[in-house]
């Protein structure tokens, strides 16, 4: 189904996510090629966020959350019996809809949080990694002179980029963005979207969004979810101009959702 013109980094096979006995996402098989941005779109409640949370094993932390099927990261099932979910989350970074800087930590400590938890690093290495992450998140110029002030002093858009920097610092391979601009103003949104373009050179990115224009702007591939099922996936340009399925066209033209 999915195009295969790049080496697969992340893939799901018949992934079904449940809350107790309720199926939230049914039998999804998708490939996320390396160094691409894949957007997941669909109306609210279609299961796109739940699906995303299965990829780094966050779903199982929700009340009653469990899955069937497989999630392959470089051909290794992250749900395999010997895999530590904590290790999975270190390789697959995630950014949420609302900025979540740790309120008790400074800007520097926020970015370093994910590094520190991965083991003791020498101070110089931490400093370098923090700067690199902040530069990648296009925040360095704005905060380099106040790394030790509270992260809460930043604007919403800056906080969100800080969270991206925090996710990038441990150098994950995949970056999951769950409606990352959902709570931002247009300027903040634009910064994040530009960032997606830069970041895909190093990372595989999956972005969940309810904003169709955003999906069209940032992604290489787009998957359309509806009622917990994958309706259609394809190159973004194609999907938006010549959707194969009726539901997709209905959604894209604003007839529901």
């Amino acid at each position: 189904m999915a195009p295969a013109d790049a080496p697969a980094r992340l893939a799901t096979q018949r992934l079904t996510a449940l809350f107790d006995r309720t199926v939230a996402v049914r039998e999804i098989s998708l490939l996320f090629p390396a160094n691409t941005v894949t957007a997941i779109i669909g109306p609210s409640g279609c299961g796109k966020s739940t699906f995303l949370r299965c990829l780094n094993r966050m779903h199982e932390l929700s009340e009653g959350g469990w899955i069937t099927g497989r999630v392959l990261l470089d051909d290794v099932d992250v749900y395999g019996g010997t895999v530590d979910p904590v290790a999975v989350r270190r390789r697959i970074g995630m950014v949420f809809q609302r900025p979540t800087p740790f309120p008790t930590m400074s800007i520097h400590d926020n970015v370093a949080a994910g590094l520190r938890v991965n083991g003791r690093l020498p101070g110089a290495a931490v400093t370098t990694a923090v700067e690199r992450a902040l530069r990648q998140a296009a925040l360095w110029d704005e905060v380099h002179d106040r790394l030790n002030s509270s992260a809460l002093a930043l604007s919403g858009g800056q906080q969100q980029r800080l969270c991206i920097a925090r996710a990038l610092a441990p150098q994950p391979e995949v970056l999951l963005l769950d409606e990352p601009t959902g709570s931002l103003d247009p300027a903040g949104t634009q910064r994040i979207e530009e960032l997606c373009h830069d970041l895909k050179r190093r990372y595989t990115i999956v972005i969940v969004t309810h904003n169709l224009q955003q999906a069209a702007r940032v992604s290489d591939y787009t998957a359309f979810f509806y009622l917990g099922k994958l309706v259609e996936v394809g190159r973004t340009a194609e999907l938006f101009t010549r959707p194969a399925r009726e539901e997709t066209e209905a959604y894209l033209t604003g007839r529901f959702g």
Binding site: W66, I67, T68, G69, D84, V86
Partner: peptide, 11 residues
């Protein structure tokens, strides 16, 4: 295939 979810991930 059902995945048994461990409650505890480490010591």
């Amino acid at each position: 295939m059902s995945v048994p979810l461990p409650t505890f991930h480490n010591r």
